[in-house]
Amino acid sequence: MGVPLLNASGCLDPLTAPEVARSLDVVVTKTITPLPRRGNPPVRIAEVEHGMLNSIGLQGPGIDVFVDDHLPRLAALGVDLWVSVGGFSAEDFARCCERLDGDERVSAIELNLSCPNVEEAPETAAELVAAARAATTKTLYAKLSPAQWDIAASATAAVAAGADGLSLVNALRGLALDERTLQPRLALAVGGYTGPGLRPVALACVYACAAAVDVPIVGMGGVVSGRDALELVAAGASAVALGTVLFADPLAPGRIRAELGAEAAARGFADIANPSSPLVVRTGKNLQTDENDTA
């Protein structure tokens, strides 16, 4: 048994790439909002040093068209499906969760509490989780932003409000300027920074949250190799999501799964997904008791 691999929300359309979807253990949809959204104007992407910026702006069909039209086709793929939901208020989150509650095709809901490309809801992350919790009995993963000083405090509040797990992390805000004109390269100037540059940030967030709460963590941010995935597991993640790497390598899930197994075995961790394996015991909770208090 290995570490489950997911796609990061917004980094795969299972309907245009079903073979990639089937190579993952869990497929996560792009964030769905209550109403249809056009998304942001192009230019929406720019490659930068060690990563990329995106400004997609949650383009999507809205929850009703999603459930009526997309969900049947997603279910037909026969993969374990999580739906990412988002919005601009507690009511928005509640509305999406209500619509998915009791739908057997959906095995969990990820709450996107942290999109860097749209306005934030006035409520705190914990209030949004509480609203979602009241609307559904489904497993809820809270996806948090790495752009906060004390992410462990948010994680603790999200879990207290009813989150069953955490997805860490979403993008950081970034800006890229055209070399010659010094004008922003994205139409809306600022976008979400993802890819390898995010890796140490993600690792620190997973490490801090794993020490603070006792729920499963999906680690993500800049994973391009099995070694990167293994480091997230060592810091406390129990599953790993692949984002930007899928753009460069549609075969990344199979490759990273194989590399992860080899990297773990090379270090003597034969069964990394087993909670009593030496890897998880030595890291995760154990790191918490280190003198090193900077986490």
Binding site: G10, D13, L15, T16, G39, I45, A46, I56, T244, F247
Partner: peptide, 14 residues
């Protein structure tokens, strides 16, 4: 259009 993935995954090339 600028493209990140080329296979429909990113919604960057709209």
């Amino acid at each position: 259009a600028p493209m990140a993935c080329g296979y429909g995954a990113c919604y960057g090339c709209v």
